[in-house]
Structure formats: structure tokens, C-alpha cells
Design a protein around this nucleic acid. Structure first.
Length: 564
RNA sequence: UGCCCGAUAGUGUAACGGUAGCACAACAGAUUUUGGUUCUGUUUGUCCAGGUUCGAAUCCUGGUCGGGCAACCA
């Protein structure tokens, strides 16, 4: 277990306190061995990232081990495709597992445990129908009733169970159940089902089995077999812990400790695998790795870094409180990471042409630009400057309010790494009245951006040379949902009506500085004053595509919002 | 109507019987060739009611509110 790079020691949490006290008492002989146990039935999302960081991070903190174990007990839902994507995602997050296991590795052992339970009179084959079992389970407030097969002789159960394995019965004909207490206040203890018949091909065991153990019967035994010390899972399994403990104790096996924590919830998105699948299947998003998706694949394609993800998971903490984390914390994590590492470049999303009337026709200058003010080692580059440039439409206002510092008629601003320019005239489309071009003058004495007379300008804006710019597609992403808390959507409401219609805005013809022409998929940089962007996998050498990972903080946008 | 779990600034999270702190957000200022970054400061909090104690966010009791549980899913 290791990470690709050294990271600051993670914050402590209640689980680490439990481990500390176990290490003091010697409960596990000072060992720490965790596991991340996904079911290979879908793509991992950022909620899984929290669990991955917790499990692998805990092992790292204590010098212990962490296994990756696929919980593959339901052949009808699982697929090897997901096994591969899960491994890729875990590695991308920067973790390497100590053991790679599958619950299906233990099918024979678990089967033997089942026989032992039957022989001890602690499990029986129930030949009731699904409906009977359901109706006899009772309710939250009423006890259930014993199955008429509950007191079937041990020999008979054993015989039936072996014949279940041998494939003599159809799906649903029998199940194996634990014999605990049908009146138990915890529903999970009311003779829980242990095995069901499924004549289905398993992605690993093929047709070897036609009976498959259920989660509760599999998970604790898998933990026990692997010598897991702390079996960390989410809160909804809290009610399963008595069963977890019971199953291990009645067979007198090595007993890991299950500990539950609250799963991640994030504003403006959701973690429901079923609903995410619906977005994929209806074409609402382009796929599981659509950059708007909260999947690890989507977040990766969006341009997030593994270290930002780890920092986020550390920042939000681990508790048993069912919380809703603000997505701005995630955004802040990637900003602070990329701020230190991402080279800067200039790109204009909504071009406004400006002509420098006093700049020599045909002249081109290479100006030196600093690649990353946060990282001197990133060096400098040359950017071409000429008579006709593009600036951002948002950086000009004909009648600016008091707080607007940028370009306006008669006003001087600095072109980043370029010259000080003054706007002399705004040329309008006579038909629409829209400003389509600016006539400006430049001060030849201000090359690089400083005036010899020491005069100051209030604003520095970005630009590209029209002649030298490359044209590229830029995809601007925003929150998937307009509503902050998807849990607030009332039952019966069409949840899709709360999707953000502007979650993707495509800019087909953005103007990028020349140096970006060779950027390859995965390349991350900051477009100065706009945000962090990365080259999408759809990108082609002559048709570059950038994704916006996250905007920069924007004081002016905030002022506008208040004023508006 | 049963059982289990939880509750600390706007959000998230520390404090483990002894000064309620941190991050993000918000607000104000400084710096700045990105209205970015960085730095400084400010505002805002222990769900309620009792009890134990010299002293309670912390321990106890009772409430309130929130979450989970009745798949041959995990």
C-alpha cells in the first residue's frame, strides 16, 4: 500500500481513535488491515473515493495493509468491465492494493461454512415461496412468523442444500436461511437468507455454481479469511453488524471489527447509481465519464487531479453524521492544487476584435510571458503580438459602472505581458447596435506592461493575436443540478426537471494562444483570469477540445451578482 | 407503532470533565502585471429541558429533530 507521492498526514477521525485504542489494548496484535470492497456492477463515484481514501489512507497511516476485494456475489448484475474500471480508478487515485481478491474466491469455503451452520442446527433450507417468506417476515413493529420449514431435520436440510448446489432445483425453489429469531426487533436477524439458487453464469466462476451466497453471509467471512482487522463500511450496514458478528461467532472464527461511517453527499450532484445510469442511458450525459458526472472517470476527464481528490477527502473528514458537503470545497481543492502546478496560458472565449491604430502594419513581436507566477521553475514562453488582437467581450463596457475596472472608451488598461492600450472608439454594427470592434492606441514605451513614467492602470486583461491564434472548442461545465440538495426533491417530482440546463455550454470557436497548438489529451493549464482547463480525449491535433475543470474565483462576478 | 444511529458558526469538522478551535463560505483591509494567488482582521455555534459536578459540547435522564432498516441487492 502506497501513494504515488508523499502527502501530508491525514486528519484523524473517530475510526483512527478506535484503531489507536485497539493498538493499546492489543486487540489485533497491533495489526491494521483494511479493505475496499466494491461490487463490480457500475462505475465508482466520488463517494467511493472517500471510502478508498479512508481505507487505503488508514492502512498507510498505521503501516498496515489494504486489500481490494470485489464483492461479486450477484452474477446477474456484475461484469468484468466494471472490475477493470474500478482497478483503474483506484490506481488513478494513487493507491496500490496489497491483496487483490474476489469474494467468489471464497465460494467453496463459504459453502463449507453453510454446511457447518446446518449441522449445528443454525441454518435450514426453506422451501417457501418468495411471497411466503416476505409475508412471514413481519413489519417494523410486528414480529414475523416462523416458516413451516424452520424445524426441518438437519439431515433433510443438508441433503436439500447439497442438491441445491448440484443443480437439481429451479431458481427460487429453495433458499438457505439462518435460524435466529423471527421476532427479533432487528429485521436483519429474522432468519436472514444466506443462499439463493441462481442458474446464472458468473464473470469469474463461470457455471461452477448455481447457488450464490448473499452479502451478509459473504462479507464477514471474506473479512475473516483475509485477516481484516477493521472492516469499514457505510452507515446503512449498521443494522447488519449484529448479523455480521453472529455469523462469525457461531463458527468461532477470527473476528474483524465492522465500523460504519457516513457516506459522502455533495451539493448540486447525486450518487445514486440507478439515476446516474438513467442519465447515461437517456443520453442526458455523454457517458459514465461525462465531465459533469460525479464518477471518478468523469471527474478525471473533467481535469481533477488525484492529489486534489485526496486533499478533498481528507478535508471533509469522517464521522457518523449524515452530512451534505458543499461542492465548493471540492472545487477549492482542485483550484489550490492546480494553482501551484498548472502553467498559465491566454485564451479568449468570447472574442472582441481590437485594432491598434498606431501599431505598425505587419509588425509582429514576440513577448515574454511568465508560465506560472507560483512556480519560477516553470519558466517563460514567447507570445506573438500584432496589430489586430482579440480580447474578451466581458472585458469591455461602453458605459461601465463605477466598480468596473476594465476597458471602456477613453480608458487605459494593460494587456497581460504586452502594452498599455487606450480605447479610442467602439465600432458598432449599425443594424444591431452591438459593439463589434474596438479602435485602440498602444503606448510603445510600455512594452512588457510597465510605463516609464510610473503611471498605473487598474486592470490587466488577457488577449491573443488574431493572426496567430488557434481556434478550438471549449466546453464549459457547471453543476449537474440546479438544486443544491437533491434529497430535497419531493417524491413524485420529476427529478430530471432539476437538472441544470446550462451544465454544459459549448464554445465552438474560442481563440487560444499559439503555444497551446500541441497540447495533448490530459494536459492541464490555467486560462488566465478564466479558470483551469484540460484537453479532452475528444481532442484532435487540428481540432483541439478543452474542458473547463473549474473557474477561478471571480470578484467581479460577485459584485455583479450583488448589484443585479 | 419496533429497533439502530446521529445532532458543535451558513457548510463541514475538532475539542475525550477544565480558555469552544480549524477549513470553506461571508464581510473588511493590505499586496498584486490574473478582480487569480498570498497575507491580516471581523461576524456567526454546542438541538431543548432537567440532573451529576467546583466546573458539562463532553457524563446521566427525558424530550425534539434528522437518518437507516420490512430485495432471493450490496
Amino acid at each position: 500500500m502506497s501513494t504515488e507521492e508523499t502527502a501530508p498526514v491525514a486528519h484523524s477521525n473517530f475510526i483512527h481513535e478506535i484503531i489507536d485504542s485497539d493498538n493499546v489494548s492489543g486487540k489485533f496484535g497491533g495489526r491494521v488491515h483494511t479493505r475496499f470492497p466494491p461490487e463490480p456492477n457500475g462505475y465508482l463515484h466520488i463517494g467511493h473515493a472517500k471510502s478508498i481514501c479512508l481505507n487505503f489512507g488508514t492502512a498507510r497511516k498505521y503501516g498496515g495493509k489494504c486489500n481490494l476485494r470485489f464483492d461479486d456475489t450477484n452474477p446477474t448484475k456484475e461484469d468484468v468491465e466494471y472490475v477493470d474500471s474500478i482497478q483503474e480508478d483506484v490506481r488513478w487515485l494513487g493507491f496500490n492494493w496489497d491483496g487483490l481478491y474476489y469474494a467468489s474466491d471464497y465460494f467453496e469455503q463459504i459453502y463449507q461454512f453453510a454446511e457447518q451452520l446446518i449441522q449445528k442446527g443454525l441454518a435450514y433450507v426453506d422451501s417457501s415461496t418468495l411471497e411466503e417468506i416476505r409475508s412471514q417476515r413481519g413489519t417494523l413493529t410486528e414480529p414475523g412468523q416462523n416458516s413451516r420449514f424452520r424445524d426441518r431435520p438437519v439431515a433433510e436440510s443438508l441433503d436439500l442444500f447439497r442438491r441445491m448446489r448440484a443443480g437439481e432445483f429451479q431458481d427460487g425453489a429453495h433458499v438457505l436461511r439462518a435460524k435466529i429469531d423471527m421476532a427479533h426487533p432487528n429485521m436483519n436477524m429474522r432468519d436472514p437468507l444466506l443462499y439463493r439458487i441462481r442458474h446464472a453464469e458468473h464473470h469469474r466462476t463461470g457455471n461452477t455454481w448455481c447457488i450464490y451466497p448473499l452479502y451478509d453471509f459473504t462479507h464477514g467471512y471474506s473479512d475473516s479469511i483475509e485477516g481484516i482487522t477493521h472492516s469499514i463500511c457505510t452507515l446503512e450496514f449498521e443494522n447488519h453488524r449484529p448479523l455480521y458478528d453472529w455469523l462469525i461467532d457461531v463458527l468461532d472464527l477470527y473476528h474483524p471489527q465492522q465500523i460504519e461511517f457516513a457516506r459522502l453527499n455533495l451539493t448540486h450532484t447525486m450518487m445514486s447509481k440507478r439515476k446516474l445510469l438513467e442519465l447515461v442511458e437517456t443520453g442526458t450525459v455523454s457517458g459514465w465519464d461525462d465531465p459533469r458526472m460525479p464518477t471518478i472517470a468523469g471527474i478525471r476527464r473533467r481535469g481533477y487531479t488525484p492529489s486534489a481528490m485526496r486533499a478533498f477527502c481528507d478535508e471533509i473528514g469522517v464521522t457518523k453524521f449524515n452530512s451534505l458537503n458543499d461542492v465548493v470545497v471540492l472545487e477549492n481543492a482542485v483550484r489550490s492544487d492546480l494553482n501551484k502546478t498548472a502553467p498559465r496560458a491566454m485564451a479568449v472565449l468570447k472574442p472582441l476584435k481590437i485594432v491598434l491604430t498606431n501599431y505598425p502594419e505587419g509588425q509582429v513581436e514576440d513577448l515574454e510571458a511568465i508560465n506560472n507566477p507560483e512556480d519560477p521553475a516553470a519558466g517563460t514562453r514567447q507570445v506573438p503580438f500584432s496589430k489586430v488582437l482579440y480580447i474578451e467581450q466581458d472585458d469591455f463596457m461602453e458605459n461601465p459602472p463605477k466598480q468596473f475596472f476594465r476597458l471602456a472608451p477613453g480608458r487605459e488598461v494593460r494587456l497581460r505581458w504586452g502594452y498599455l492600450i487606450t480605447c479610442q472608439e467602439a465600432v458598432k454594427d449599425p443594424a444591431t447596435g452591438e459593439v463589434i470592434e474596438l479602435r485602440c492606441t498602444y503606448d510603445p514605451e510600455t512594452r512588457g506592461g510597465n510605463a516609464p513614467d510610473g503611471r498605473k492602470v487598474k486592470s490587466t486583461i488577457h488577449w491573443v493575436s488574431a493572426e496567430h491564434a488557434i481556434t478550438a472548442e471549449v466546453r464549459l461545465y457547471d453543476h449537474l443540478f440546479e438544486i443544491a440538495n437533491v434529497a430535497d426533491i419531493p417524491d413524485g417530482d420529476d427529478w430530471k426537471s432539476h437538472l441544470n440546463p446550462k451544465s454544459l455550454v459549448v464554445v465552438p470557436k474560442a481563440k487560444l494562444e499559439r503555444s497551446l497548438a500541441t497540447a495533448v489529451p490530459g494536459y492541464k493549464c490555467q486560462f488566465e483570469r478564466l479558470g483551469y482547463f484540460c484537453v479532452d480525449k475528444d481532442s484532435q491535433p487540428q481540432a483541439i477540445v478543452f474542458n473547463r475543470t473549474v473557474t477561478l474565483k471571480d470578484e467581479w462576478a460577485k459584485i455583479q451578482k450583488k448589484g443585479g
